[in-house]
Design a protein around this nucleic acid. Structure first.
Lengths: 157, 157
DNA sequence: GATATTAGTTAGCAAGGCTAACTAACTCAA
DNA sequence: TTGAGTTAGTTAGCCTTGCTAACTAATATC
């Protein structure tokens, strides 16, 4: 790779990084209106794929088991999740989203996506093609297809 | 707008949202290696534009004054920032990044951008054109040009 | 059946949000 | 010019959400 090409790559990566940060900061503005904390919304999004064990949830959320244990207890108290014993293994706890939890997640996600859709309102067909191509590329590069939604926890980037 | 077009917009916004989340989650992995907390890195990035008052910093970081006051005190203790009195107004504190702080920020940012650049390594010229177009569009839509860098604080999205 | 492993919980600490209440400094009008 | 109001920042104290260490209970293994 020539130095010039490398510099171009760096600049593109930098701009992509910055754009992603600011895009999410914008999208996140509506989160408090869901009435559920960001960490809980994020965990709920994982549960949309079906019930999960505490360990699976912790792994998906990239937190340690005690953190998820406490978070799920709070979610239970808030009425957005249920804890059920695993019939086959007495150690395992299966966590389910409640209808209330699903509604909160749907609301939060809809508000975030609506904020982004609003940003995209002015895109012409060419912009749209470029965005679709770019998003598709990023999805492939990250090795993700139907990527789950995650809410912000405390992250500012 | 036809229902179909609207659904397409929604889907694109949703995918863009998800891609941004996962892109940043990937980029953030290297942050701990800077030896400076994410919140401090983010504040340092604001200081790259020159000294700021505590209030300006708090506004830029979207936190309250006491939060920034404490954060800057920790940054001072860590040697990445200085607090200087404002000669014209005795109430005002001017915060400067130190050389150590600038180095930490540069290191963190370089690692993040390198992670993204690594993801982009396989992009062909067409992908690159689409990415540049898409990033340019997002930058314009967000009304930002030379966007400052912000580190994650605790946000998971 | 004894031992090791695994899933989850509890306890306690740190970072980083917040509000309330305070001090010090500045502004302005009587 | 001085007294009231405003503004910048700090302190104190709370909450959430990370963490590790140490524990219990259940399962697996030899």
């Amino acid at each position: 790779m020539t130095p010039a090409a490398r510099r171009t790559d760096w600049e593109l990566a930098d701009r992509l990084h910055s754009a992603a940060i600011h895009l999410l900061r914008r999208a996140r503005r509506t989160d408090p209106r869901t009435g559920v904390s960001a960490a809980q919304l994020s965990a709920l999004s994982v549960l949309m794929g079906g019930p999960k064990t505490l360990g699976d949830l912790a792994a998906a959320e990239q937190v340690r088991a005690p953190t998820m244990s406490r978070l799920v207890s709070e979610m239970k108290r808030a009425g957005v999740a249920r804890k059920l014993p695993d019939p086959a293994d007495g150690r395992v706890v299966r966590v389910h989203a409640t209808a209330k939890g699903r509604r909160a997640l749907a609301r939060g996600r809809a508000m975030r996506v609506e904020a982004i859709r609003h940003l995209l309102a002015r895109c012409d067909p060419e912009d749209q093609r470029a965005l679709e191509h770019a998003v598709g590329f990023i999805e492939r590069a990250l090795g993700q297809r139907a990527a789950p939604w995650r809410s912000a926890t405390s992250d500012r980037s």
